[in-house]
């Protein structure tokens, strides 16, 4: 093979590798994008702090309002049980949503969530919430769903977020794909009750 053909071949190989690299990068963007949002709070992605030590409680307060959406495919009624709470910064708060399965079969739901305005995502910390797992509701079942959170006092030190007086926490419940839910599934409401008691205990102990 002539030198020129060899040179051309080698160069082409490098370029093909570049193409492969770019395809790889585009698939890598999937976890990278999620990671980026989690780390920066962009897009109103709250921080998940399952075992966080909440920072010291400040005297400043902020209002948190609640919003609930249900995708039309899921035959549930899903609403917040309180329109809003006013919390001290750094103070852990416990709020409830309620979901009712309006249909006559068991269905499984999964929730997505975000906070608005988006820029407060970095300072909104969720300690515990129902959104981490799928929820199964039997026909006609009504279940309270707790959310435990705190707002980091550093929100007032950040020049872009210090003017925020109200945060909205919004959930959307979708029907989870694995529809074949048998009634042998663990009674979710008992689980919820148990975790509720545990949370209530924690809250009582904190104060």
């Amino acid at each position: 093979m002539s030198k020129r053909v060899q040179k051309n071949g080698r160069f082409a190989f490098i370029l093909f590798a570049l193409v492969g690299g770019m395809i790889g990068l585009s698939f890598a963007s999937v976890p990278l994008y999620r990671l980026f949002c989690q780390v920066t709070g962009y897009g109103g992605t709250p921080q998940i702090q399952a075992e966080a030590e909440p920072p010291s409680v400040s005297e400043r307060v902020i209002k948190v309002q609640f919003d609930a959406n249900t995708n039309p495919k899921l035959p549930w009624r899903f609403k917040p049980l309180q329109r809003e709470v006013t919390v001290k910064l750094g103070e852990e708060a416990l709020v409830f949503f309620e979901a009712e399965n309006l249909s006559d079969k068991s269905t499984m739901g999964r929730a997505t969530f975000n906070v608005t305005p988006y820029k407060v995502g970095l300072y909104f910390n969720k300690v515990d919430c129902f959104c981490f797992d799928e929820q199964v509701l039997k026909a006609g079942q009504v279940v309270p769903m707790p959310v435990q959170f705190f707002v980091d006092p550093e929100i007032f030190d950040d020049p872009t977020t210090k003017e925020v007086k109200t945060i909205t926490l919004s959930y959307t419940f979708f029907q989870a794909e694995d529809e074949t839910v048998s009634d042998n599934v663990t009674d979710r409401s008992t689980e919820v009750e148990v975790s509720l008691r545990a949370v209530a205990r924690d809250v009582v102990n904190t104060f």
Binding site: N71, S170, T172
Partner: peptide, 16 residues
């Protein structure tokens, strides 16, 4: 347009 509002509405996400 006359109020300069224009924002996407997306499933699973709330814009403000």
């Amino acid at each position: 347009p006359s109020l300069a509002i224009k924002l996407d509405t997306m499933p699973g996400r709330t814009n403000e």
